[in-house]
Design a protein around this nucleic acid. Structure first.
Length: 396
DNA sequence: CCCGGAACTT
DNA sequence: AAGTTCCGGG
């Protein structure tokens, strides 16, 4: 019930990386809230988030061509994703399956030959998230961007973005009747030359692309705040301690908080001029590591600070190193072995109901933040039927 | 590893 | 719709 998984969030005071110059995240990088059932974070979105944070450079990072990234630590990425989705049994095998589904959607494609390397199809990302954006009007995007070398002419000049995400809150033409998806697609690709040319078009990909024009809304969602990452943080604590990927709303002053979507190298400098002004209030500086985020209500963070987030680096693979490699859960035999649960999340009981309140719950309900089991953790624990039930219930 | 079908869940 | 879970095949 009280899956406080999220609540305690962002705490980690300093998060300069978020506004690192050169990092800008266009609004459209976020799926419109209105989009059917899109309240939940999407994998590609999540990937982008990780990619954006330097803390995760050892886990996943941009590398190679434009939009190309490599998952340096598959297990870790999977674990993080599992945390985000409250899927304690997530692993790279499953995550990669999800990534593979993106192939047909043209959101991603695999970089053959390179292990754990994928490449974003930014144009698609744009379309999916900002279908109504009529680039035509943004002549700046069309007119001045020679395809060769994304560096030659950066389409994302402050002016360009400015016009796209005008102060009025909505990009120009947003309400214009939507032109054909194809048209926009072309335009977008013109604007995003680095994006994998829709090479291997083909098969049903076309179909899915055509039918998935989401309803564009003038919605803007701030990027998630990923607190300093520490891979030593055990799953359980990490999970309940705070929600690293809570991309919930942050009442940021500017409403539009750009963060990085593309590798820095994609934007020699233009963007860097844009980020700072947007996220900071005059007089505020980023180096105030101890300060809260500007614009974020104290109540949101109050409880957070008091939780140092216990670093329990023990149970790595002591008793059951193998356990997590292969799912060793018995279909119905016996409940999760303690050993396993140690790695998997003891409190997952909350998640058993399928990430119900897990993913997104109102920030800091105020007090129900009990997190680390180092705390008090009522002995009764309700004999939670953790994953056991989960795997057994649905089928039988 | 990587791929993608199939069944199932949210 | 967007995965999650399994899984056979390369």
């Amino acid at each position: 019930m009280d899956c406080s998984c999220v609540s305690d969030i962002l705490l980690t005071p300093s998060m300069p990386a978020l506004w690192t110059p050169g990092f800008a995240f266009p609004d459209w990088a976020y799926k419109p809230e209105s989009s059917p059932g899109s309240r939940q974070i999407q994998l590609w979105h999540f990937i982008l988030e990780l990619l954006q944070k330097e803390e995760y450079h050892d886990v996943i990072a941009w590398q190679g061509d434009y939009g190309e990234f490599v998952i340096k630590d598959p297990d870790e990425v999977a674990r993080l994703w599992g945390i985000r989705k409250c899927k304690p049994h997530m692993n790279y095998d499953k995550l990669s399956r999800a990534l593979r589904y993106y192939y047909n959607k043209r959101i991603l494609h695999k970089t053959k030959g390179k292990r754990f390397t994928y490449k974003f199809n930014f144009s698609k990302v744009v379309l999916v998230n900002y279908p109504l954006l009529d680039m035509a009007n943004s002549s700046l995007l069309l007119g001045q961007n020679p395809f060769p070398g994304a560096h030659s002419h950066d389409p994302f000049t402050p002016e360009a973005l400015q016009s796209l995400f005008s102060p009025t809150g909505r990009p120009p033409l947003l309400d214009r009747p939507l032109s054909t998806p194809e048209t926009e697609k072309l335009r977008l690709e013109a604007a995003f030359p680095f994006l994998g040319s829709v090479q291997e078009e083909s098969r049903e990909a076309e179909r899915s692309a055509g039918g998935q024009t989401a309803v564009g809304s003038a919605y803007t969602k701030p990027p998630a705040m990923l607190p300093p990452y520490n891979r030593n943080t055990p799953f359980p604590d990490y999970t309940w301690g705070f929600n690293p990927y809570l991309s919930s709303t942050f009442p940021l002053t500017g409403s539009k908080l750009p963060t990085s979507l593309y590798p820095p190298q994609f934007y020699p400098s233009s963007l860097s001029q844009l980020a700072p002004p947007v996220s900071l209030l005059p007089g505020e500086s980023l180096d105030r590591s101890t300060s809260l985020l500007p614009g974020i209500p104290q109540r949101l963070c109050a409880t957070l600070n008091s939780h140092p987030m216990p670093l329990r680096v023990s149970g790595e693979l002591g008793s059951t190193g193998a356990v997590r490699r292969d799912r060793v859960e018995q279909p119905e035999g016996k409940p999760e072995p303690e050993s396993d649960s140690d790695l998997e999340i003891t409190d997952v009981s909350d998640c058993s109901s399928e990430a119900d309140g897990c993913g997104y719950s109102p920030p800091c309900p105020g007090s129900s933040i009990r997190r680390s089991r180092t705390e008090v953790e009522p002995p009764k624990t309700v004999t939670t039927k953790t994953s056991q039930e989960k795997s057994a219930a649905p089928l039988s």
